[in-house]
Design a protein around this nucleic acid. Structure first.
Lengths: 353, 353
DNA sequence: TTGTAAGCGTTATCAT
DNA sequence: ATGATAACGCTTACAA
C-alpha cells in the first residue's frame, strides 16, 4: 500500500519525483544558493508546496556539517534583565539568517567548570556567545581550544574569544563621579554587592572605575570610600544587605552626601532603606544606579545606561561574520555607557556645602 | 596519512574500535538506556573520554527521529518580563532532560499567520510551547493539525492544544474588585490598554472579569466603568496613553475613587500621570495593577500576582509527559492569582465616603 | 548482553 | 544547469 499509514512525511525524494527532477536539484532550488533555472525552481517550489515539504534540519546538519544553531551561554537566569535583552538582541539578527538560538545558563562555579570542560568536545552548534562571565585562566584556555567561533559579551579577557562587545564600566563610573563632583559633592561613596565566588562580570571593574575616577577628580582617600557588604548579610536578601550598607555609609567619618551603587537594583534597595531612616533622596543624599534596567525608570533613578539589547545585536553581527569566515574589522568593541539624569541626584545639601 | 589533518573529530566508530566493541554497544552504553554490562560500559566510557567524544545531535536526531528540541513561541519580545520568565521556567525543567529550547517570537498578525501556516509542516522540534496568544479559528485549526504535542501557556481555547496552563484572570480581577469594595470604594473603574489587532492574551478576560465581579459585588452600571484608550493615543507611547485615560477617569460623572489597571505597566503610568495632576495615590485615588512584575515592587504597587516562572515549569512538565506518550492527569490547569497588598490602595477618601 | 547491517534525509562531489 | 551517488554519524531491528 503506497502512501499507506497516514501518509508519512514527504522527503526530498518525493518532491524530486513529483517535480520531475533530481534530489540534488531540489536541494539546490530550495536553498536558493546554487544556480538553478528559474523554471526549474518554480516547478520544485510548487511540488514542495503541494507536499507540504520542508527540509529536515537534522538531515541537513548531518550532511553539511552546519547545525545552524548558536548557543547563548549566560551566567544568571534567562529571566534577568540583562540576559533577556542580550537574547532578544541576538535573536533579532540571527533568526532572519536561519539560525536557531539555544539559550542556556550556568548557576555557580561548579556548574561552570563542568560546562567548560565539555565545551571543547561539543559539535552541536556553529558558534557560542557567552555573556557576563568572569573567567579564570583554565577557562580561557578551554575557550581557546573550542573549534567554533566564541563571541564574548561583557567578558573581560578579549584574548580568549574571537570577537566581543562589552560596555566600558570605567567610562561609565567616571561619568557618575563627574556628575557628583559638578553637583558639589565632596564626600562620595561606592556601594557594592557581595560577589559570590566572583562569577560576576562588571562588578570589579565598577569599583576600580569609581576609585580611578575619584582620584582623577581630586577626591582624597577619605573623600571617596567603598562600602561592600559582607557575605553574611548577602545571604539574607537585598533589604538586609541594603541595611548593612546604609549603616556603613551613615557611620562613615566623612559622611558621604552621594553614593554610586553597583547596580540599579542595589541603588533602589539603598533608597528604600535610606527613606526608612528618614533621609530624603536626593535632598539629603544623592544616589546613582548603574544599568538603566526597567526598574530604574520606575524609581526615577539617575543611572548609567548600558544597552544589552544592542550588545546582543552586535555580538550576533560579529557571529555572523565569523561564521562566514570573515574576520570582523573591529573584533573587540566597547560600548560607551550614557548618563541618564532623573530624580535621585541633586546639588549637595546646603547644610553641608 | 592516517589521522592526518589536525585529527578530525572522533566518531562512534572510533570509540567502538578503541573499546573493542561494536558501534551499537557504544551507542547503548553512552545513552544509558538499553542493557549494557557494567564492565562494558566502563570500557566504553573510558574510550569516549580518551577521544573527547560526544554524540552528534544531528546524527542522533536523524537516526532516531527525535530532535530533542522544543520550540517556545511567544508573542512579544523575549525580553519582556512574562516571556523571559516562562522561558526560564521551561528551561529549568527541560534542560536537565536533555532538551534544547529554541525560543522564538512573533510581532504581529501577519507574521503570526505566516508562522502558523508553516507550522504543520515543521518536523524540526519534538514539541511546541506557545505562550500568550489570542487565536482565531483558523489558527486553532492549524494548531490541531500539527503532529507534535502543542502546549499552551495563557492561551484561551484549550481545545486546540494537548495541554495547557493559564492563570485565572477572572478570579484575579474578582480579588481586586473585592478588595476595593471592602475598602469602601463605591465608584470604581477598569483602565485598559488599546489592544492592537487583539493579539494579546489576557486583556479581554480582564475586562470581562472586572465587569462580572463588579456586578456580583453590587456595583451598578454607573458605579463600575471601563476606560479604554483609543488607537490614536496608543501610538504615542505610554505617558500619552496614561494621560488620556486619566482624563477620562477624572471627567466621569461618578468619579471613581479607585481603578484597576490591566497591567502593572499601565498602573504605574497612571500613577505618574495622576501625580502630575496633583492627585495623591492612594489618598485621593487607589490603583491596583496586574501581574506583579519586577516593576510592581519598586513602585510599591498593590497588584494581582501571576507567576510566569511557574507557568513555564508546569508547561514543561506537561510537555515531558506528552513526549513520553503519557497523557497528563490534568491536561489543562489554571493558576490562581494572588492579591499582593502594597501602598497604592487604601480606604476610600473621607470626603467621598 | 552484544554484534550486524539497514536505514534516517540531506548535501556535496563529480560527471555530464 | 542538472543528475548520480557517495558520504554524514548515529539508532535500531534482528540475529546471535
Amino acid at each position: 500500500m503506497v502512501g499507506g499509514d497516514g501518509m508519512a512525511r514527504a522527503t526530498i525524494a518525493d518532491v524530486a519525483k513529483l517535480a520531475g527532477v533530481s534530489q540534488a536539484t531540489v536541494s539546490r532550488a530550495l536553498r536558493g544558493v546554487d544556480k538553478v533555472a528559474p523554471a526549474t525552481r518554480r516547478k520544485v517550489e510548487e511540488a514542495a508546496d503541494r507536499l507540504s515539504f520542508t527540509l529536515l534540519k537534522s538531515a541537513s546538519a548531518l550532511a553539511s556539517g552546519k547545525t545552524m544553531r548558536i548557543i547563548l551561554l549566560c551566567s544568571g537566569g534567562l529571566n534577568e534583565w540583562f540576559n533577556a535583552n542580550v537574547l532578544q538582541g541576538a535573536y533579532e539578527v540571527l533568526s532572519p539568517e536561519g539560525y536557531d538560538i539555544c539559550p542556556s545558563f550556568i548557576r555557580g562555579r561548579d556548574e561552570m567548570n563542568r560546562y567548560f570542560a565539555q565545551l571543547p568536545k561539543d559539535r552541536n552548534a556553529d558558534a557560542i556567545i557567552i555573556a557576563s562571565f568572569q573567567l579564570d585562566e583554565t577557562q580561557r584556555e578551554q575557550l581557546r581550544s573550542i573549534d567554533m567561533p566564541v563571541i564574548g559579551v561583557n567578558i573581560p579577557a578579549e584574548s580568549s574569544c574571537d570577537a566581543s562587545v562589552c560596555i566600558d564600566n570605567f567610562s561609565g563610573m567616571a561619568k557618575g563621579v563627574c556628575l557628583l563632583k559638578s553637583l558639589g559633592h565632596e564626600h562620595i561613596a561606592f556601594a557594592g554587592d557581595y560577589i559570590p565566588g566572583n562569577m560576576v562580570y562588571s562588578a570589579s571593574q565598577r569599583v576600580e572605575g569609581f576609585l580611578e575616577a575619584a582620584e582623577r577628580n581630586g577626591y582624597g582617600e577619605d573623600d571617596a570610600s567603598i562600602v561592600m557588604c559582607s557575605e553574611h548579610s548577602a545571604s539574607y536578601g537585598k533589604p538586609q544587605l541594603a541595611a548593612e550598607l546604609v549603616a556603613k555609609i551613615l557611620s562613615s567619618p566623612n559622611r558621604p552626601t552621594a553614593v554610586c551603587a553597583e547596580t540599579d537594583q542595589m541603588a533602589i534597595a539603598l533608597i528604600k532603606e535610606l527613606k526608612r531612616q528618614h533621609l530624603r533622596v536626593p535632598d539629603d543624599i544623592s544616589v546613582i544606579g548603574f544599568d538603566d534596567a526597567d526598574i530604574a525608570e520606575v524609581a526615577d533613578l539617575t543611572t548609567i545606561r548600558q544597552d544589552p539589547l544592542e550588545l546582543g545585536r552586535v555580538a550576533a553581527y560579529k557571529t555572523l561574520q565569523l561564521l562566514k569566515g570573515e574576520s570582523p574589522a573591529e573584533p573587540h568593541e566597547s560600548q560607551e555607557p550614557m548618563l541618564v539624569l532623573r530624580d535621585t541626584t541633586s546639588r549637595v545639601p546646603l547644610s553641608e556645602a
